[in-house]
């Protein structure tokens, strides 16, 4: 075996099968270019201070996009994840205000997320409803419930030890970033090394074949809906700890960025293809783009336009590349 094929194998092992590795590689190159361009354009960009500040924001998006990736690979879709993040903060703040210990409150909020995930999963699999509609509906319900519970107000949430999750540092690296990295490593192990992960790829790649092979199609998808909801809850906890407050709709505006990151990262909406590393790099790109443009005094209105253009360019290029090969 020649040297090049060996390094290709190594690469494939790192970034997951199905040719998604190449997409991740292209994204990485694009990310590095972005870093180079912005460090020329703005002297503040490549500072430790700036880098740590964007990493917390990136971590928030990253955590919400984390379990959404395996879910889309398995042929599902979850639009309720950002709403769940909002509700989580609200539940934690209210239960804590009612006198419950903070970590018990967090546990309760995660429990609620599990239930929402189960509802999403059961409706989308056993009842064969379109996941787009199902999770759009739960998103609306969950957002509404958050607003009802708080009366639309932001609840303060300042607890020693708890806020560390959002604001603390370990060796200078923000805790949210470390948490995100841990979640991605765990998901990567799950997708590449376990039977469950293999089933997720199979179920998304060809649900009919998977059923006829006797794979647990519905069970796999439901588990992933639950995981997606839980990753929303983790993001919500981090967000509340970061802000020192629970705002019912704090995470809502990030939903489109989350979905955009998953698609940009090479995960196919048709299912069966994708990798969590692709999503991570895409989150880095979108976060860096935001930050760089802000530093260059581009208004947030133009940032929206730029993000859309980058998305079309990246996905278009990848589509073209795959059709060529």
């Amino acid at each position: 075996m020649s040297d090049t094929t060996h390094s290709q194998n190594l690469f494939k092992r790192l970034f997951g099968g199905s040719g998604v590795g190449t997409t991740v590689l292209i994204l990485l190159v694009f990310y590095v270019l972005l870093l180079i361009v912005f460090s020329f354009l703005s002297p503040f960009f490549m500072t430790v201070r700036n880098m740590t500040s964007i990493s917390s924001n990136i971590a928030l998006i990253g955590l919400m996009a984390a379990a959404g990736t395996p879910l889309i690979i398995a042929g599902g879709l979850d639009l309720s994840v950002a709403a769940i993040a909002g509700l989580t903060g609200v539940i934690v703040a209210l239960l804590h205000a009612a006198g419950l210990p903070i970590w018990i409150a967090v546990l309760c909020a995660v429990g609620v997320a599990v239930v929402i995930g189960l509802v999403n999963g059961v409706l989308a699999t056993y009842l064969r409803l379109n996941p787009l509609i199902v999770t759009l509906a739960t998103m609306s319900i969950v957002t509404g419930v958050s607003l009802i519970l708080t009366g639309g107000l932001t609840k303060p949430l300042s607890v020693d030890g708890f806020n560390w999750i959002g604001q603390g540092r370990v060796f200078g690296i923000p805790v949210p970033a470390l948490l995100m990295l841990a979640v991605y490593v765990a998901l990567w192990l799950m997708m590449q090394k376990t039977h469950f992960g293999r089933h997720a790829f199979a179920v998304g790649g060809n649900p009919d074949a998977s059923r006829l092979i006797g794979l647990p199609v519905d069970r796999t998808q439901i588990s992933l809906y639950v995981m997606s909801a839980v990753s929303g809850a983790i993001a919500g906890t981090v967000l509340a700890a970061m802000l020192g407050a629970a705002a019912p709709n704090a995470a809502g505006p990030h939903l489109l960025t989350v979905i955009a990151a998953i698609i940009l990262g090479g995960t196919s909406l048709q299912g069966g293809r994708g990798s969590v590393w692709g999503t991570l790099v895409a989150v880095l790109i979108l976060g860096t783009l935001n930050n760089g443009l802000t530093l260059m005094n581009v208004t947030s209105f133009w940032q929206d336009v730029t993000r859309g253009v980058v998305l079309i360019l990246a996905v278009g290029f990848d589509g073209l590349r795959q059709r060529m090969s």
Partner: peptide, 19 residues
Amino acid sequence: TDGIMTDMSVRENLVAAFQ
């Protein structure tokens, strides 16, 4: 349509039933 997972490898397809 309902036999193979087209994007997966020969190995992954062959062991799928009794993985």
